[in-house]
Each structure stands twice: as C-alpha cells, then as structure tokens.
Simulated scan of single mutants.
Amino acid sequence: MYSGPLRAALTALLAVGVATAATGCSSSDSDAAAANGKLDVVAAFYPLQYVTQQVGGDRVSVTNLVEPGTEPHDLELSPKQVAEVTDADAVVYLRDFQPAVDDAVDGGAKDKSLDVATVEPLKDGYVPLEEGELHEDEKGKDPHVWLDPTRLAGIADAVAKKLGDLDPDHASEFTANAKALDTKLSTLDEEYRTGLASCQEKTIVVSHNAFGYLAARYGLTQVAITGLTPEEEPSAARLAEVANYAKQNGVKEIFFETLVSPKIAEALAAEVGAKAEVLDPIEGIEKNSGDDYFSVMRTNLTTLRGALQCQ
C-alpha cells in the first residue's frame, strides 16, 4: 500500500495524464450517461451507491468504485477509476473511510463532491471495556452511519439537494424520491425499535467496530474484537478482555461479517462456548446475492432478535 504522500502524488499524476491523454480512459458508463442526458455519479461504496440510485432514479447513472463482494476500507483505485472520479458530474463519498478515494477527490473532484460525513457529525470510536484511554486502533470517528436508518435518511436528503443543484429541472423529482426513501427508512427504523424493545440481552459481541450507530439507536451495547477497520489484528490483551467479558456475561453468539475472514470470531466463539453467526455491516453486497440494503438490514434484525432473546 502506498504511503499518503506517494499516493497523493500518483493521484495527481494520473489526473494530469487523464486530462492530456485520450478521452478513452473515461468509462463507457460515463459516455452513455452523457449521451442519455443523465447525471454521471460516482459512489464510493455500496450504501452510497444504493441511496444515490434510489434518489436519482432514471436521471442518474451511478458507478460504484468497489466491486461486489469486496471489502471497501482499503480500496486502491486503478487509473481508470481515478479518471471516473475526475470526470463524474458528482462524487458521493465518506471522507476518511477510503483514503484512496479522498486523494482522488482532492486531486480533481473536490468542487463536485458530497462528503456524507458532513451531513451529521460523526461519533467517536468505541470505548474499551475497562476504564482508561482508547486503544490506538479504536481512536477516530466511526464512519458506519448507514446502519442507523435515520442517519441514512439524512444522507438521502443531502444527495437529493446535490443532484438538484446539478439538474434544477428535475430537483423536485429528486426531492420526491428522497422523501419516498425516507418513508421506507422510517418504517425500517420502527421495525428495529419494536423488534428490539423487549430483549432479555442487550450486548452484541462483534468482529469489528461497525455497529456503534445501530447499537446507540436501539439501546444495545456493542463489544468489538477489533477497531474501526476489519483488517486490524486484535492484540492478545484485547482478545482476552473480550473473552472474559463474554464468559462473565453469558454471551451466546459472536458475530462476524460476510466480506472478511471469520477465523478470529470463530476461535473466540469456540473458547467461550458460543456460536459464531453473521451480522452484516453492509459495507458491500456479495456478488449475485440478490440482496439490497433493506433485505440485509431485515436479516440482521432477525439475527439480533434470536441472539438477544427478544420477545
């Protein structure tokens, strides 16, 4: 992985190369969008792609920078993808979640980007189980805002405004689409609030710190094995800390996710006599799964209700 300064320099060179080389470096999707009078929008990863498609409808062509089934945190962009960011009418991204996307935006798309982290202030990363300072891999702002449906509704409204500024003739259509999505998200929020209101257990032990917003919204406590990115290796002290907590509190499920290795969660589950089950942070959708944001959120709710012994 390139260092920050080297990555930024390469991004700048690529942007210059795109500008001076043949326009064939641009994606065919971008060309098709222009030919059809659609806005060409680049979304940094799946939840932002989904929202932009729902809000933009037939008036936008949306390119997701992350391939289906791929974990998005450590995305590296190809020259073609840097060109897509530079050439797009708009870029919807979340700053500090994917450094390569930040660099590409800064290199040629800052004036046409929407950083969804600015819609509502992000929360700090989680606090350790014991009193004291944050662990080094726990520091920083939690980016996983889409797991709170009410926050995702705010992002939808911001996307509608961005698209409306670019295409004023269809601004009312974008606003109406966002309102329809907001209604669906409000229904999902009610399902979660009702479904998790009467649970015997209130703690979820998860493989990485992705569920803080969901936990805060619905009165749960998240205990995470690793920090804000799933590739981090937990320290032996952290593993022991979580294992002791799980044993003392009779935790029956240790949750892992779909796009990263389950080995650590499975090993911890075996040690404490629990089951390892999937709880999906929806950072991406598995290829050919047929799922979308709402179907995965509802599967997560069913999983949580079973694990937390909800009535």
Rank of each mutant, 00 (worst) to 15 (best):
P143K: 06
S27P: 04
A265C: 06
V62G: 01
Y293Q: 01
L163M: 06
Y93R: 08
R217S: 12
Y93I: 13
E138G: 05
W146R: 06
A100W: 00
A22K: 13
L196R: 01
Q248A: 09
E133D: 13
E257S: 03
F174W: 05
E190Q: 15
E241P: 05
K162L: 12
Q309N: 10
G290F: 04
L6K: 15
G140Q: 02
V91Q: 00
H135P: 11
I282N: 02
L196E: 01
N300T: 04
W146N: 03
T203K: 12
T11V: 11
M1G: 10
D157C: 06
E138P: 01
P68S: 06
A153G: 14
T303H: 14
T299D: 09
P234T: 08
F255N: 01
K80Q: 15
R59M: 11
L94H: 07
Y218E: 09
S198P: 04
E231W: 12
G24D: 12
I264G: 01
E283R: 05
E76C: 05
K162M: 14
E131D: 12
L65V: 04
L129S: 11
P47I: 00
E173M: 06
F294G: 03
D40P: 02
D106C: 14
S235P: 07
L185S: 02
R7C: 13
V55F: 02
L279H: 07
D102I: 02
N300Y: 02
E266H: 07
I282H: 00
A43F: 04
T23L: 07
G306N: 10
M297Y: 09
E84T: 08
G140C: 07
L163C: 08
M297E: 05
A12P: 09
I155Y: 04
A15R: 07
Y46C: 02
I282W: 00
S78Q: 13
T63S: 10
P5C: 05
